[in-house]
Design a protein around this nucleic acid. Structure first.
Lengths: 189, 189
DNA sequence: TTTCGTTTTTGCCAAATGGCAACTGTTTTC
DNA sequence: GAAAACAGTTGCCATTTGGCAAAAACGAAA
């Protein structure tokens, strides 16, 4: 829980009372490897913060292939398309690449925090803006370079992931096949 | 100006008084073809809404090539990384693909609207969430498909752009060379 | 240690894309 | 209307990546 508070404090100030309120609302959740955090089409009823482990956001393209949109590392909020509305139905899947530990808030509690903690929505807005921009930048980089460079960028951007995430997931994130990625790694050595 | 109000009303309700306030703050801006709306590294002091024309958001990769991150069509807000802070310094360029007409708000006026119009920030948050998700989805699609399919998707997603945007811009958006795109178009015919 | 299942590497060849330069066609300018 | 500038197409060939299947490496469980 400390890690969540520290995360939030990077984006704005809170007093002790506010921190207590937030602490009281969050509850721990363990998500074993390969289990879903979200499934496309199924209503999401909570907001989560990843404390430990790696999550993977993915969807299926029109050929039925599983495409990894991005990874979520520890100490990051899991942002839904809409953090306000009670009902959010994602069009993508999120599942655990490794065993994960999360802190989750029900939508009701989250709304209460929103209504009680002044400035909370601005903190959120900052977080959303920051991560969306980061994701966009990374994605843009993926399109404008050859596969080797994309992989090099990946290990630089996510040094903590390379050894924890199976090759086929990384390959689908980079937009290449697993065998191509394997060959690329061979050449790099 | 009507188009901006209509755009906003899609995301939330406003009363006449609020609408008037907003109308009074916005001012028209004409941006001729090829001129910058933003330049990387230069402070941005206003928020803009594109009424007519096409804008292009791009950056330079490490080989010095110009990469188009996305296009902005008419009737869309131009979202900066942070719509609140006074000072925003973009890391990318935005320039006019065609002659453009915009409505712009100074950061000060924008902040005033934010402080006066209740629910304005929620409207904004919805807009931001919607477009960021759209952009992410499009970008993800670009990585997971071959070039022909990417181009077909592009003309489906942006039917209004194909004939107004030079080929090399589209090619760089799709992550291929201009000659490849030209060949792809030949095959499609 | 052995076995089983999963992940990663590799070989072979086909297909897609890049790089470069020349050519064609279109618009702009004088 | 000729010249110049720009945008788009094409040819040629090298390089990259994909597809498929088999082999190798690795890890977990018996």
């Amino acid at each position: 829980m400390e890690s969540f508070i520290n995360y939030i404090l990077q984006f704005g100030n809170l007093n002790n009372q506010q921190i207590e309120l937030i602490k009281n609302r969050g509850s721990a959740l363990e998500l074993p490897k390969d289990e879903f955090y979200w499934e496309a089409g199924k209503t999401v009823r909570h907001i989560g913060f990843l404390v430990e482990g790696v999550l993977r956001v993915y969807f299926y393209n029109n050929k039925g292939e599983e495409i990894t949109r991005y990874f979520i590392e520890e100490n990051h909020l899991i942002l839904s398309g809409d953090t306000i509305d009670e009902v959010y139905i994602p069009s993508e899947y999120i599942s655990a690449v490794t065993n994960c530990k999360l802190i989750v808030f029900s939508k009701e509690d989250w709304k209460e925090i929103l209504g009680t903690v002044i400035g909370w929505d601005q903190i959120l807005q900052k977080i959303v803006a920051k991560y969306h921009n980061e994701k966009m930048q990374r994605r843009s980089g993926l399109v404008s370079q050859d596969a080797t460079q994309r992989y090099l960028d990946f290990i630089q951007q996510f040094p903590g992931l390379v050894n924890r995430v199976p090759l086929n997931y990384i390959a689908s994130y980079l937009g290449i096949t697993q065998s191509s990625l394997s060959r690329i790694r061979k050449n790099i050595r």
